[in-house]
Amino acid sequence: MSRAALLVLADGRFPAGGHAHSGGAEEAVKAGRITGAASLEEFCRGRLHTAGLVAASLAAAAAVGVDAVALDAAADARTASPALRVAARKLGRQLMRAARATWPSGELDELARRFPKGAHQPVVLGVAARAAGLGAVEAAYCAAYESVSGPASATVRLLSLDPFDATGVLARLAPTVDLVVDRAVEAGRRVVGGGVEELPAGAAPLLEIGAEVHAAWAVRLFAS
């Protein structure tokens, strides 16, 4: 396992489309639920334990070689908002392109053939991690960290939040990211023998509702 490959995949500048998405932060800012560093931290903590845990578990399971089609269906079942399902597939398609160019692999080609318009992003992330020679732990770390780093960088743009404060939020959440990754990797490994029912199904209803509201806005900065 190359630790440097993990840095490549986890880099916020990895060209896979994430920069255009706020992870629900744009709607939460407009609704007054994120107003500064403290409320950003609470928003991210909630996201990490719900959407973040599910994404990290899916990525971990895909990284150990669980059938991507079954995982994709499980991701659909765990994503109530149609707008979020669309966003997850768009991001999955973009990640698939970047990963295939970066780590050419038969498994990624097969995934692209099976899902030409994109599979759920965490599933693609797990297969991409495999192609990069990484395992379940690394895939789960990428997914869990992304679930909070996206909203944090979006909030810097949306609120003109001090970027040092936003980065401080991420640093304070790091121990929680570790815990979520531990749970996600355990769940992902249980899927090998027990099927996708072993995946957590945590959801944040307000994130789902907010995503639907956001998708109907005529004017917005972020795609989701």
């Binding site: 489309g17 392109r97 972020f222």
Partner: peptide, 20 residues
């Protein structure tokens, strides 16, 4: 294409949405 407040990123640094 939606650019997340950074139009130059979408045409230069991360072109995936435009390629799609």
């Amino acid at each position: 294409v939606e650019t997340g407040a950074c139009p130059h990123t979408a045409i230069r640094d991360d072109i995936s949405a435009n390629l799609e």
